[in-house]
Amino acid sequence: MKPKYTIAVTGLNNTDNPGPGVPVIRALREAKEFDVRIIGLAYENLEPGIYMENTADKVYQIPYPSTGSDELMQRIEYINSKEDIDVLIPNFDAELFTFMMSERKLKEMGIQTFLPTIKQFEERHKSELPEYGKKYGLDIPFSKAITNLSDINNIQYEFEYPVLVKGKFYDAYLAYNPAQVTEFFNKISVKWGVPVIIQQFIRGTEVNVVALGDGKGNTIGVVPMRKQYITDKGKAWGGITLGDENLIKITKNLIEKTKWRGGMELEIIKTHTDKYYIIEINPRIPAWVYLAVGAGQNIPEALVKLALGEKPEAFKSYDIGKMFIRYSYDLIGDISQFEKLSLTGEL
């Protein structure tokens, strides 16, 4: 008989800028070695995953980490008193730091996580990437973090246009001149704060990798993919698994050198001369993770096993040429569901 775990998952925003929550839940429901009861943790009361069938067994609203980690932990403590959570999988960049800092507190509550260490999380920040590249011997485009508009005039001495202008968590725009950099700096800093990162633009094809490190230098899962269709926010709306061995080597090398712990997504540019530049390292499972599951690597299942102190075997292969295509779908709900969630914070 399979054990049954209660797993709390955030990121139920299955919108055109999707969080990984729903695909993670789908993966966990297909786990071979355990059954699950899923507790959805939602920040907003219109996150689609709240209302989707066969997704969360129970949903609780939680406060944004920006309101303070004490408030968030109190809420988790309350939810845990009702649900007895075994594992928590946070899926938003912006909440990871709070959950990492609260790892011990969560453990005391009996809740396991499997997240990168603070050091791993901090040193791969977009603003720190060039240093990261030097430290671990990785090809990374030159970039510079800027904090105010006066820095924009100086970047012309260090960069050739076009350049990428990026927010510290999300958003990236290609700018061809200082006026555009100014425009994007304002747009990004209002939304995500500073620093804003200016990154050398590398011409080539963007490819992505989802991977899972066991924290000891071993790669448990790795699947590369190329986006075939993107939304106007640059998010994958369709993708296909690749058989490029170099991407797997780069990922395994990074995980080995950094002893990466947890899920990760690498964003890589492959140039026409077959050079590979890492442009971003996201310290969490990406929203397209279900493609990896479809290709034969149930990475969320392996992550749960790691969180519970088990030693899952590394996946040996995956299917090349597996595709995913997202779609939108109108769910019909009732005002009473919305009412219940809004008034009680539970559904």
């Binding site: 094809t205 490819v207 993919m225 190329r226 075939q228 296909i240 690749l242 058989g243 490029d244 090349i320 040429g321």
Partner: peptide, 18 residues
């Protein structure tokens, strides 16, 4: 060596995904 061509003439390059 890993280029795949189906009987209908559909060619897939698994390295690039094209």
């Amino acid at each position: 060596k890993n280029i795949a061509v189906s009987e209908t003439g559909f060619l897939f390059d698994p390295n690039s995904g094209e």
